[in-house]
């Protein structure tokens, strides 16, 4: 559905994206995970034709580069910034963006209502966006990417700065869209979101794509061993293992000089571990 080949973009001496190649398959949710400033938004910008790459190419759905109107009609974008007009109502915002994609009349009206309904904003359709909460604005931002019903969605940090309720709503909406067959590229620096939503993940740092794969495979390959923490008479033990369940069974069966274990905790490797392993830094550094 989307193929990036050797993309490179520099701003003066800053290399924003460095030789990024990847392929996103039709119907999958692909997570682009990386800290702030890693190059995620620049990559998205090149995917939608807003940023011209210095070298490399972008191809969408086998139809071409996103520099033509025909190709752009296949894309829906939710930028990281809240790209909505505060002085327009929710419905007016979506109507405007729908018209830019050639929609009109009853069809536009139906799609506006459907998109608002999908993100749970139908009851507030006639209110100005400026009166929405931060989470509602994020949901409207997402709805604006959906109104023309595109097959490929590019969501750039769609949950940035939202309350837990709106975050859950957005994540559920993305999951529903994926189930409905949309291809989704989802950038985030929250590993929990990537693990919860994404079929595959690419980890990007300092403009370079460090690895791409299914979350479990990446964790297995780069996350290191699980850690079992055991508590006995106020003392703590730490055991690294490939098989934490067997290790726990062993711990529980063994009564040492300090008596039986009073607490056991498993720390499984995750995408944070993968990022730490690959870069030596935490995702939130």
């Amino acid at each position: 559905m989307l193929r990036l080949e050797h993309l490179r973009k520099t701003y003066g001496s800053l290399v924003a994206v460095d030789d990024v190649s990847l392929e996103v398959r039709k119907g999958e949710v692909f997570g682009l995970l990386g800290p702030n400033g890693a190059g995620k938004s620049t990559t998205i910008g090149m995917c939608v034709g807003l940023v011209s790459p210095d070298s490399g190419s972008v191809e969408i759905g086998g139809v071409g580069a996103p520099t033509t109107d025909a190709v752009r009609r296949h894309l829906g974008v939710a930028p990281q910034a809240l790209a909505i007009y505060d002085d327009l109502t929710g419905a007016e915002n979506l109507s405007l963006f729908g018209r830019l994609y050639g929609l009109g009349g009853r069809d536009l009206s139906d799609r506006v209502h459907r998109a608002l309904d999908l993100v749970g904003l139908m009851p507030r359709a006639s209110d100005r966006a400026g009166k929405y909460s931060g989470g509602m604005k994020r949901r409207l931002n997402l709805a604006a990417a959906l109104v023309h019903d595109p097959p490929l969605l590019l969501l750039d940090e769609p949950t940035a700065g939202v309350d837990p309720q709106s975050r859950n709503n957005i994540l559920d909406t993305v999951r529903d869209l994926a189930r409905a067959g949309r291809t989704i590229i989802y950038t985030t620096h929250y590993m929990e979101e990537a693990q919860r939503l994404c079929d595959r993940v690419g980890i990007i740092d300092k403009g370079r794509l460090l690895c791409v794969g299914v979350v479990d495979d990446l964790v297995r390959a780069h996350g290191g061993k699980s850690v079992v923490r055991v508590e006995r008479a106020g003392k703590h033990e730490r055991v690294e293992t490939d098989d934490p369940l067997r290790e726990i069974a062993t711990v529980l069966a063994h009564v040492g000089p300090d008596g039986p274990a009073t607490g056991v905790h498993i720390e499984r490797p995750d995408l944070e571990s993968v990022f730490l392993s690959l870069t030596g830094r935490s995702l939130r550094d």
Partner: peptide, 14 residues
């Protein structure tokens, strides 16, 4: 500033 230009320019309009 508010990002709506990104949305306008990513739409199929010149």
């Amino acid at each position: 500033q508010r990002g709506t230009l990104v949305r306008l320019l990513s739409a199929p309009v010149s």
